[in-house]
Design a protein around this nucleic acid. Structure first.
Lengths: 97, 97
DNA sequence: ATATATAGTCAGTTTTTTATGACTTATTGT
DNA sequence: ACAATAAGTCATAAAAAACTGACTATATAT
C-alpha cells in the first residue's frame, strides 16, 4: 500500500460510514458512546468504536474519562476537529439543490 | 446499506485511492487516461477507470472524446469539480506542519 | 510485419471496511 | 435479586474496494 498523498490520507480518516454524523453531534457538544449509538440506530458498535479511535488518533477528537466506576466517557472536538467541522460545512454547501 | 447523510456520500465519492491526485492533475488542465497512468505509476488501470467513472457520475469531471480513431479522450473539471479543488486546498491547509 | 500508443474491459483474487452477536466490569434503579 | 446502563472487546462473517494479468480495437511508426 502506497498513498503518499497527505490530502488523500486526511480525507480518508475524515471519510467513513458514521464519521460525518459523529462530527455533527460533537459540534454541538461533547458526546458519549451510548449517545452516538442511540442517535444512530443503524450504526453498529464496532464501527463506531473504530471511527472514534481513528478520529482520536488523528487528533480530531479527545477522549475524556469523566468518571471511572461507573465508566463515563466523553468525546469532544479538538481545535483541529473544529476545522473539520468547517470543512463539512463547505461540503454541505456543495450539495446540489 | 443506509447512509442518508448527504455530506457523507459526497465525501465518499471524493475519497478513494487516486482521486485527490486526479483532481490535482485536472486542476492544471484536462487530463487523459494514459497521462494519469504515467503520472501515477503505482495506480492500477481498473482503479483509475472506476475513479474516473465515479467522478464523472457525480459531475466533478466531464469526459470529452477529442478524436475517435485513434481514440483520444480528455477529462476536464466541471464547475462542481472546481469547487472540489477548493475543498482539497482547505484540506491541505489542515495538514499539520 | 512488428511494436507502440490510444482507452479501456473482463474475470478472478486479495485487502479493507462494516456488520453480527456474544461477552465483560461496574453501578444504579426496582 | 434482577434488569438496565455505561463503554467497550472479541471472533467471525459479509460486503466493498483495490489489484492482477490477460485481452480488445484502431492507428501510427519502424
Amino acid at each position: 500500500m502506497d498513498q503518499k498523498c497527505p490530502a488523500s490520507e486526511l480525507l480518508k480518516t475524515l471519510n467513513g460510514k458514521w464519521k460525518a454524523q459523529i462530527f455533527k453531534m460533537a459540534s454541538i457538544g461533547p458526546v458519549r458512546f451510548s449517545q452516538i449509538l442511540k442517535a444512530l440506530p443503524e450504526a453498529n458498535k464496532q464501527s463506531v468504536t473504530v471511527a472514534l479511535r481513528e478520529l482520536e488518533a488523528s487528533a480530531f477528537l479527545v477522549r475524556n474519562v469523566i468518571r471511572e466506576k461507573p465508566l463515563v466517557v466523553e468525546y469532544g472536538l479538538t481545535e483541529r476537529g473544529k476545522l473539520a467541522i468547517a470543512l463539512f460545512s463547505s461540503i454541505e454547501e456543495m450539495i446540489e439543490p
